[in-house]
Design a protein around this nucleic acid. Structure first.
Length: 371
DNA sequence: GTATGCTTTCGGC
DNA sequence: TTACGGCCGAAAGCATAC
């Protein structure tokens, strides 16, 4: 039998520090010493909406992502603070510049969202964690020199460990975890550090007496599968041991595109909702066509007054590009949803399209039409 | 039974 | 405790096909 000596991988995870707020700071030096809170305003009332990101000064006072804006204002009531609306177009531009710099360092590159990336640098550093540390320092230097943005970096033998490592020292941190240190490194950390463990899963695990990753590792795998199902149970078991074989690879195009808005006021009037949904549909539809795609599935979403989310969806027999078909389908789906929902009123509505197909002739058509 | 497809919900950032 | 965005991917749950 032929055996191949498999050297350990060396994976880098890069996380841009408090990204949206840092971009705002960079562009308005005057706010740098203040609490900066980047907000998603919902358009109902002065301060309705949620916090997207805050700088570390604001965090010191307990401001967190996802928190209602009014809550953040209370926390910062005796502090010099700046509240700004999100400017996604701006952050996307900065992100792209940064990602294009970073990707040149790696044999394999994977962007995650707007502010995170994985690099497989095994070849580049010849399996050496010392070289990887040096490389990471260089990357940080170049990013700061060219973009004036700091980031936190984690290095490990796989994506799981690299990501957790990046989160250990923030902002502007660098954490290296060598293969032989993995067990020791993860075992005392709270399970919350694992990707896929949020508030709900954390609670479920706590009810099983599991608080740390080490305790998770000690838990019988059958028990985990019993509680979380096959996929998640096995994932948790492997993750608790710092095992993750998933490759660093470029992500393809999005599998769904959606838009959602908060209504001016809660309503049960289908006409009001449909008007909004039709607008959103136009938006999503044009974005899909711009990418030369057709689609097969449409779903609508309603967030009720108690913040529970309901959805209805429909998949066509064949892919289509028709906006009219989307809007007609959305209307049917909305009626279907409201028929079953008699007491609560609706706070937010949205639309989501998925099941994309490449439209082969699209490019030429676009050229002829002058687009 | 297993594979596959569709709908709805969950959870992370 | 307050009051509450806008996305995304993927799992769960169920139905149908072979």
């Amino acid at each position: 039998m032929v055996t191949k000596l498999q050297a350990h991988r060396v994976v880098i995870h890069i996380d841009f520090d408090y990204f949206f707020a840092q971009v705002e700071e960079r562009e308005r030096p005057a706010i740098k010493d203040k609490a900066v809170v980047v907000c998603v305003y919902s358009g109902r009332g002065e301060d309705s909406g949620a916090v997207s990101t805050a700088n570390y000064i604001a965090r010191k006072y307990g401001v967190k992502s996802g928190m209602p804006i009014v809550f953040a204002k209370k926390k910062l009531k005796n502090v010099e603070a700046v509240f700004l609306p999100v400017n996604h177009a701006r952050y996307d531009m900065v992100s792209q510049e940064m990602m294009n710099m970073i990707r040149t360092y790696a044999y394999a590159f994977e962007q995650v969202g707007v502010d995170e990336a994985y690099l497989d640098v095994s070849k580049r550093v010849d399996g050496s964690y010392e070289k990887a540390r040096h490389l990471a320092t260089e990357i940080k230097k170049e990013i700061f020199a060219k973009e004036k943005i700091t980031c936190s970096i984690g290095i490990g033998p796989n994506k799981l460990v690299a990501k957790i490592a990046a989160g250990r020292k923030k902002p502007n941190g660098l954490t290296v975890v060598r293969p032989e240190e993995v067990q020791q490194f993860v075992s005392d950390l709270p399970v919350r550090e694992l990707m896929g463990v949020g508030r709900k899963t954390e609670k479920k695990l706590r009810e099983l007496g599991i608080k740390t990753i080490g305790q998770l590792a000690a838990c019988n795998i059958g028990r985990l599968v019993g509680v979380f199902g096959n996929t998640l149970g096995n994932y948790f078991h492997n993750a608790s041991l710092g095992i993750d074989e998933t490759p660093v690879e470029q992500r393809g195009r999005a599998k769904s595109i959606s838009r959602i808005v908060t209504l001016k006021q809660n309503t049960r009037d289908p006409a009001v909702m449909l008007k909004e949904i039709k607008n959103l549909a136009e938006d999503v539809h044009s974005s899909i066509l711009e990418q030369g795609l057709s689609f097969k599935s449409v779903s609508i979403v309603a967030v009720m007054d108690d913040l529970t989310t309901l959805s209805r969806s429909k998949t066509f027999q064949n892919p289509t590009e028709s906006l009219e078909k989307v809007q007609r389908t959305a209307k049917e789906l909305l009626e279907l949803l409201l028929k079953r929902e008699t007491d609560r009123s609706v706070r937010r509505v949205g639309i989501r399209m998925s099941d994309f197909f490449e439209e082969k002739g699209q490019k030429q058509l676009a050229d002829f039409s002058g687009n």
